[in-house]
Each structure stands twice: as structure tokens, then as C-alpha cells.
Nucleic acid binder design. Structure first.
Length: 587
DNA sequence: GCCGTTTTCGGCCCGACTGTTTTCAGTCG
């Protein structure tokens, strides 16, 4: 029997809900919710941790009872308490919790009183007027539920950051154009924390004339529906189906507001608890003294944390894990920034499946201020997309010789070589040896078992010519997860052989993902942030790679392409097992 | 159910909004 961390997190979320439906202690409910959030983000597999007898109680928010339930889930595939709780409540209760505005109390009430077990049955009950008759309901509530059920159907669930961030940036730029009085403005919520997908877009701003900004938002051409239009908060749905919430706040509370609406909720709970212990109380306007009740407004976020005796905690790690403990001890890492990247180590051209020429890509990389760029076109592979034969690759190497000088950037010759199903590489060793850098990746035979995949990648890492494993887990955001792949084994091999793992910035991949990056950092695995660009515009995808790296607590010193060009070349010129010391200790 | 520079017991984040209420429960972020 096996259970993934996500399944265990889902179980704890459901348990929290069921306990709440039963009217159990809200603190017990919150304990399960916290455990769910923690498990979801854990950098290592709980199943493996249980098998190896590790102490789960060292994990924040996991104590005696929950640790036993994790063991039960991993060893038997089910948790008795959960099954029992579920059987005590009416069918449909958990389902109705997915309807916005319907919480545990309402979900049980409508399941019990209407007898509905599915959303379709509930919809029929509402149309027949059977919900409005239920005590504590009413016509208005019934119609609201109906509206939400119908909107739920047309709304897509979560949107990748690669779509959401540009959309938010466009809206912000449109608002600036329309409203000269718009002063501060920033994304908040999960978008500001750079989660790989977001449920909606939160934007906050300050202005002398907030109404004008709100009017501008609801009047934007891409707005499909206006859900709310006030002077403090407005909500719209844009063409793509994504919801955008805009809040206009007073400038003197900007810091407290931004902190509050950035979350995460778990981070807020821990921070407020921390403040309470120091005689302070936090809300979205500022910080008040518990005794006197006097409120100090906070105009900027740094001051907000400083008032609590803490350094500014970067939004990307505000997830209620270890960030508060480390902040208190002054041991927060200095997370890698986009400006730390000196080059891009994964770029394609129209010699294979890219859209732009070698020269155009190199020029664009130079214009972006990079010191170096590696051209890494695909090998023939077994797939349909045309890769470069070994002969064409060597032609490309000769073509590149003069290009860098003309464009004012160091050009590294390279390739993205396919790791064949047996773990061998798709170019002969003597060809690969002539390149500055080799990225080895998998695009074919994805149907192999996770164990075969693991062996295949580990074998490729043993090859002395392989510098980086590209998109190492072959995941695709929202559609294909790397379940079963032995990431621990990959990282162990990477550390042992001195092979770097890529953080692929293509927003459809984001591979490694945040929790894997965190684990890689812990294990001292070298990392490389690459755009995997296929056209000039894609070069900017490194910013998504950096965002994921930051969520993975990654510092500049962990990342290969923060090295200046001469240091990187010296690194690549050193035999793999001896490279580690050249990167370690930086940043 | 978790947790401890006041504690192994007694605490546990905070405010806004909504609808159905005669003073508040439920939901959300």
C-alpha cells in the first residue's frame, strides 16, 4: 500500500471538515488543517520517512496522534477514525463543502434536510423550492448557492503562475495608465508568494482617488463579469474565467494590509500567536498593544516585521513552516534573486524546434544583460521533433565560434541530449566532449515505470559529460506529476557524481518544483536555473525558475549560473566529482 | 490535537461580510 503526501494532506483536510461538521473543538480542527498544509509542502516523502522509522513528530504541527494516523495511512492505506467520522455524517456533506459560501454547518444541514447527495440533486432541490424552506436558510441563501453551483461549473480551478502573473501585470499597467493618482500597487495572495498555480488574482493599491481606480478596473476591456464594485474592494472575472480582486487601502496601513493579504493563512496564525506572546495583537491595519489597545498603523511591510523584532520574511517562504523560527534566530537565508543570474544554461534555436535564429537568441540574451548563454538544441531522440544529428551539432559549434564576440556575450556550445530508455545518451561521447555544456533530459518513453525512469536518469548522471539533468522529474504543471519517481535516489546520485539538477523555468514545467528544490538544497545538490527558451520572449521564463527556487529556500550559492563566466568555465572544466567545492560556500 | 524564554495543563489569530436574526452564527481570507 502506498500513500503520497498529497493524499495524506487531503485526508487531514477532510478530517478537519468532518470534525467541524460534528461540532468538535475548533482547535482540533485547526490542528488537522495545519498538518494538512505542512504535509502538502514537505520536502520528503512521508511514506519513505515512515518506512525508515523517522520521527514524524519533529515536523511542525505533527504530534503524537497525527503521527500515528500517518503511520496507519502509510501501512494500511486507510485511517479508521476517518472512515468512522465519514459514516456518521449524511452523504454529500463533503461534496457540498466545495461550493463557495457553503461551510461545514451549511453542508450538513442541506445534505440532511434535502436528502441531496450530489450537486445535481441539490440543484434540483433548489429549483423545487425545497432548500428555501429549510430552517435558517431562505430564498436569498438558496439563490446564492444556486448561483455559485452554476459558476463553479464554468470556472476553471487553478491557473498556472505563467498565465496569472502576466495577466496581473497587464491589469496593473492598465490601471496606471487610466489613473494617474494610483500610487502603490502590488499583487498579494498566492500570486505574490509565487505559488505555481493560483485560484484567483489579488491586487492591492493606494490612491487619493480609490473610486477612480475601481471604476477603471470594472471598465477594462478584458472584464467579462463584475462580481462586486465598491470603493474598498471590487471583484471581476476576465475573459479567461479568472477572478481578479482589487483592494484599495489607506496609505498609512499599506504595510499591514499587504502583509495580511499576502498570507499564507498558516503564516498569519503563527505570526499572530508570536505577537500575542509579546503582548501585541496584529490586524490588517497595524499592530496594537494588548494592554492599552493603542494601534500603531504600519505603512510598510518591513516596518511591520521590524516592530515584531523580525527581519522581513520573503513572501515566497511565508508558508507557516520553519520561516518564523529562523527569522527569530536571525538565520533566514538570502534567497536567490533574478539579478543574481549571470547567464542562461538552457536555450534552443530554430536549428531544432525553436522559433528564432541562433543570432536572434544570442542577441536577446545579451540585450537582457546576461554574461553568457548556452545554446542547447535537442538531439535526434526517438521523437518526432527534428533534433540535430551529431554532424549538424558540430556544424553549429563552428557557427557559434564568432557569434558571441559580435553580440558582446560569451556563448557556450552545448546540447540538450536525450537520455535514451536504457539510460545511454543520444550523441557519442567524443561529440559531447567537444561541447562546453551538456544538458541531459527525457522526452520519450515516458510510459516507463517510475523505477525504470529512476534507473535511467541515475545512469545518465554517471556519465562524465553530463553537466545538468534538464527538467529532472518530467512533470508538467497541473497534468503530469512525477509520482513514484525516487527523487531521493536522484538527488543522492546528483550529489555523489557532481551533476547539477535543473530548475526549469518553463511555466508549464517548473521542474524541479518547490518542495523538491528545498530537499535538493538540504542535500547540497548543485542547481541550475534555465529558461528552456524556444523563442526570444521565453528567455524571461528564468524568472519563474527563480520564483520556484526562492520557494525552495535556495540561495545564489546553490545555483551554477550565478557564477561569473570565468568561474563557470573553470567549474565546467573540472572533472565532475571535484566540482562541488567550487560552488559550495558561496552566497 | 499541538505546544512550551511564564506552562506537561491551559491556552490556541482576527476582522469583515452576509443573511436571518431580535443579538448572532456561519463563512471567508
Amino acid at each position: 500500500m502506498s500513500s503520497t503526501n498529497d493524499q495524506i494532506a487531503g485526508l487531514f483536510d477532510d478530517m478537519a471538515t468532518l470534525l467541524q461538521m460534528k461540532g468538535d473543538s475548533i482547535f482540533k480542527v485547526r490542528a488537522y488543517q495545519r498538518a494538512a498544509r505542512t504535509v502538502e509542502q514537505l520536502p520528503m516523502s512521508l511514506e519513505k520517512a515512515v518506512r525508515e522509522g523517522e520521527d514524524l513528530k519533529a515536523i511542525p504541527g505533527i504530534g503524537d496522534a497525527i503521527s500515528k494516523k500517518i503511520q496507519e495511512m502509510v501501512t494500511t492505506g486507510r485511517v479508521d477514525t476517518y472512515e468512522r467520522l465519514k459514516s456518521e455524517l449524511p452523504r454529500g456533506s463533503l461534496t457540498f463543502m466545495n461550493i463557495p459560501g457553503v461551510g461545514p454547518k451549511t453542508a450538513v444541514l442541506i445534505a440532511r434536510e434535502t436528502g441531496a447527495g450530489t450537486v445535481e440533486e441539490l440543484e434540483r432541490a433548489i429549483l423545487q423550492g425545497r432548500l428555501a424552506d429549510v430552517p435558517r436558510m431562505g430564498e436569498k441563501t438558496a439563490q446564492n448557492i444556486l448561483r455559485h453551483v452554476r459558476r463553479m461549473r464554468s470556472k476553471k480551478s487553478r491557473v498556472p503562475i505563467g498565465d496569472a502573473l502576466p495577466m496581473a501585470e497587464e491589469v496593473i499597467s492598465q490601471l496606471h495608465q487610466a489613473c494617474p493618482g494610483l500610487d502603490r500597487v502590488s499583487p498579494a495572495g498566492s500570486l505574490r508568494r509565487s505559488k505555481e498555480t493560483v485560484g484567483d488574482i489579488d491586487i492591492m493599491g493606494t490612491s487619493d482617488d480609490p473610486d477612480a481606480v475601481m471604476d477603471a478596473l470594472v471598465g477594462l476591456p478584458q472584464v467579462r463579469e463584475v462580481l462586486g464594485h465598491g470603493s474598498k474592494k471590487s471583484s471581476v472575472v476576465v475573459q479567461s474565467g479568472l477572478q481578479i480582486d482589487l483592494r484599495m487601502v489607506d496609505a498609512d496601513s499599506w504595510g499591514a494590509m499587504l502583509q495580511y493579504f499576502t498570507g499564507s493563512q498558516q503564516h498569519s496564525i503563527l505570526l499572530r500567536d508570536y505577537a500575542n506572546q509579546r503582548g501585541l495583537s496584529l490586524n490588517e491595519y497595524g499592530i496594537s498593544d494588548l494592554e492599552s489597545g493603542a494601534l500603531e498603523k504600519q505603512a510598510d511591510e518591513e516596518g511591520f516585521y521590524r516592530r515584531l523584532g523580525l527581519p522581513l520574511i520573503p513572501p515566497e517562504i511565508r508558508e507557516g513552516m520553519w520561516e518564523l523560527d529562523l527569522a527569530r534566530e536571525g538565520r533566514l537565508p538570502r534567497l536567490v534573486e533574478i539579478g543574481d543570474l549571470r547567464g542562461d544554461l538552457h536555450v534552443h534555436s530554430n536549428w531544432t524546434d525553436g522559433a528564432d535564429s541562433l543570432e536572434a537568441m544570442v542577441q536577446a540574451a545579451a540585450a537582457a544583460g546576461l554574461e553568457y548563454v548556452a545554446i542547447t538544441d535537442r538531439s535526434p531522440g526517438r521523437g518526432t521533433s527534428a533534433g540535430l544529428s551529431s554532424k549538424d551539432l558540430l556544424d553549429q559549434v563552428r557557427t557559434l565560434a564568432s557569434l558571441g564576440e559580435r553580440c558582446g556575450i560569451r556563448v557556450l556550445t552545448g546540447c540538450e541530449v536525450e537520455i535514451l530508455p536504457d539510460g545511454s545518451l543520444d550523441h557519442p561521447e567524443d561529440v559531447l566532449q567537444q561541447l562546453d555544456i551538456v544538458v541531459a533530459s527525457i522526452h520519450s518513453a515516458l510510459g516507463q515505470s517510475p523505477a525504470e525512469m529512476t534507473r535511467r536518469i541515475v545512469k545518465a548522471m554517471a556519465d562524465p559529460t553530463v553537466d545538468i539533468v534538464g527538467h529532472p522529474t518530467c512533470r508538467m504543471v497541473g497534468s503530469r506529476e512525477s509520482e513514484g519517481l525516487d527523487v531521493e535516489a536522484l538527488f543522492a546520485a546528483a550529489a555523489a557524481t557532481g551533476t547539477a539538477m535543473e530548475i526549469n523555468g518553463n511555466p508549464n514545467r517548473l521542474d524541479l518544483k518547490d518542495s523538491h528544490i528545498q530537499r535538493a538544497v538540504d542535500l547540497g545538490v548543485p542547481l541550475a536555473i534555465g529558461s528552456d527558451a524556444r523563442c526570444i520572449a521565453d528567455l524571461a521564463h528564468t524568472r519563474f525558475g527563480v520564483a520556484m527556487a526562492r520557494r525552495g529556500w535556495c540561495e545564489a550559492g546553490h545555483v551554477l549560473n550565478t557564477l561569473p563566466a570565468p568561474d563557470l568555465l573553470a567549474y565546467l572544466g573540472t572533472p565532475k566529482p571535484h566540482r562541488r567545492s567550487l560552488l559550495a560556500g558561496r552566497g
